[in-house]
Design a protein around this nucleic acid. Sequence first.
RNA 1: GGGCGCGUAGCUCAAUUGGCAGAGCAAGUGGCUCUUAACCACUAGGUUCGGGGUUCGAUUCCCCGCGCGCUCACCA
Length: 557
Amino acid sequence: MQPRSRLAHSRPSEATGKSMGTRQFDPYFSHWADIAARRVLDAHPDTDPIVVAAGITPSGVVHIGNFREVMTVDLVARALRDQGVPVRFIYSWDDFDVFRKVPADAPQKKMLEENLRRSVADVPDPYGRTDSYASHHIERFEASLVPLGIEPEFIRQSRRYRAGHYAHGIRRALEKADLIRSVLDQYRKEPLPGDWLPLAGFCGACGRDEVDFSWDGEWSVTLSCRDCGETTAVDLREGGDVKLPWRIDWPMRWAFEGVCFEPGGKDHSSAGGSFDTAKQIVGPVYGGVAPEYVAYDFVRLKGLGGKISSSSGGVVTVADCLRVYEPEMLRWIFASQRPNSEFQISFDLDVIKLYEDYDRAVALAYQPDDGSRKDKKRQIVRRTIELSSVVPKRIEAGDRPTRVPSFRPLSMILQIHDGDVERALAHYESRGEVETPAERERFRVRARCVWNWILDFAPEEFRYRIRSTPSPKPLEGEARAVLERLVGILEENPEITESELISHLKTLCDDTDLTPRDFYPFAYDLLIARPKGPKLSTLLTTMGAERALPLLRAGLG
RNA sequence: GGGCGCGUAGCUCAAUUGGCAGAGCAAGUGGCUCUUAACCACUAGGUUCGGGGUUCGAUUCCCCGCGCGCUCACCA
């Protein structure tokens, strides 16, 4: 059966992949996002476009854990599009949610406390920049997605509800209240009361959510505020401060948008969790089907030296991560982990290892297949790298990756240049290691990340600065004699290359009782005020004789 | 109490829908007269938690047990 003819660039394996009931290994479908995409297509063979959805409550700083939801959907959306399928990616901001708790680090705590129990869309922005508390967090998060190439269609649920978009959905829930109640009661410790209505909302006068509801059996809902005593009538068709509780809201919106794929955090995913009840509600109440589902695990944090994020309490945002990780790497970190596995985002020395792992993966991805057993691994890595690209792309035979320096040497070169990205770039260009415009751009992105890491997270032994004023302490004895030789070498040949310098360094201590190991600490102390440092030959040639000589001569008194 | 996930080399994890159990780091050996968790080459390292089952073949699938973690039983 040929389910659809929309394979824009159909692959040979599409034609031959199924035979005798077994499916050949197809590297293009090796990734979990590809497998999820295929599941979606199997379940929705005639849907066009395929709707994929993510959603978050902006009840506080939107952090890197929340990001996993968006990233998961983006990867599946990418996988679907790579099969030539039109995709609509909607991102639902559940900003019609109750403001329950003032974050520990928020400004204007008193103002915020006075706004508890109101909708986060109605609480003022304590930072005074946007029209609401919700908008503040929403705007920051949306902006942080741009460098990652994630461009969903954002939907503010507060506006949808208030505009009456969901009138039929709410009415349908009211009509089926008994059914919904019985679904929910299966898992509740305390059954819902017999007169329970599937409604939530905010008082029209004070804006708080401590309201009782009544329904006239048609389009009119009345809210009675337990707080201020006010009574508000809402015509569902016109919209107002009435919404469905989360467990009903979710399936209603599945049906409304025709969602084909939506992941959920593990808190939604267990038996009796909101996905479980939602999928029991969506059919009988809304005549819809539950989307294909992926449960994702949490993201943990590691190695925070206390300097991340304006917000305390270990909240790390996407923007925080992008200070240290290149956009492709951040995508890669999520793309290379299965969604149902928990992992850590690290800011300590793991960062170096991750950069090395990533560079290795890129190198492997661009290696041509050679028919050996390693091809499988290459293909999987290649697909993961493709999905990690900010701009969608295929890696074809003969493609070359954009060159970029390794993290560790770059961190050294940057420090020698006091964090000046352009001077460090000039250094790499002079060695022919950065040449094209693409390489220059790539270099700048990585260099900024490296420098941010040095500033915020590198352990002390990793950091150094070249002395701005020469050491006041001259050397004595043989150390001084060796230093004189070194100064002589640099004076004689200020443009000395690193390899030339190495051959000199090997004989530097000849005819003395010192070994290089004994002498180097003196040199490092003169240059960077520390007993150890980057490989001396690299340090001297990179900083240049012009800069090194005054510091070294200080050791001669 | 229900559900989900995990358990593989000293550590962190892979293993492509069942087909020779692999990487990185750590360790050991050799090399580079020495450099930030240096680099290169090589070596070693495993009863895949335990016990059954299905299969020509199980890390993978099924059942039982043990251990660990998370989650729902309030709200979202």
